[in-house]
């Protein structure tokens, strides 16, 4: 079994992480803005980033299904391995479901999603205010769930690196490996 992640897996991991760290605060910020051209722009950019995450997530899951990740260290307790796998699985699920919920919400609110202003995605739902409001709640709840999981995920990565001093973080962040 491989010792480290493939370069593709690493690239996709950090690219998606970067997009999430952009789209998440943007979503919170744009929400309370007064109606203005800037608000419309930010909403569009948020949607474009979300669709990008969705497309990259599909590539990533396809890659993951065909390339086994390195095994977790033997030193990890059974529950730790289980927690790591459960969080990873949930994060994979959320990077598919959260963009989907946003896309459906946008359709239900009567706004088609046009990726980068160029590629129109089909409206899978027709305009329906109640459904739009419900999907908005779902989109928010799922995002805060993801925030919690990402914080736990980062915390675990830091704990591995600074306390266990194992190779978990460096195999996802090869920069670190070269130094040591």
């Amino acid at each position: 079994m491989a010792e480290r992640y493939t370069r593709t897996a690493i690239l996709l991991h950090w690219l998606i992480a970067l997009l999430i760290f952009t789209a998440f605060p943007l979503g919170i910020y744009m929400h309370d803005l007064p109606f203005s051209p800037d608000k419309l722009k930010l909403y569009s950019w948020h949607k474009w980033i979300g669709v990008s995450i969705f497309l990259l997530a599909i590539v990533r899951l396809t890659w993951r299904a065909t390339h086994r990740p390195p095994a977790l260290p033997e030193a990890m307790a059974g529950w730790e391995k289980f927690a790591a796998r459960a969080v990873h699985f949930s994060l994979y699920a959320l990077i598919i479901i959260i963009p989907l919920s946003g896309w459906l919400m946008s359709s239900a609110k009567g706004f088609q999603t046009v990726w980068l202003g160029v590629l129109p995605l089909p409206d899978l739902l027709s305009k329906n205010k109640e459904l739009g409001d419900l999907l908005k709640e779902i989109h928010e709840v799922l995002n805060f769930l993801m925030l919690g999981l990402v914080l736990a995920h980062i915390g675990a990565a830091l704990k591995h690196h600074f306390i266990q001093r194992d190779s978990i973080l460096s195999r996802m962040l090869p920069m670190l490996r070269k130094k040591s």
Partner: peptide, 8 residues
Amino acid sequence: KQMGVPVA
């Protein structure tokens, strides 16, 4: 059309 998106 708002940000390239047709709005009815």
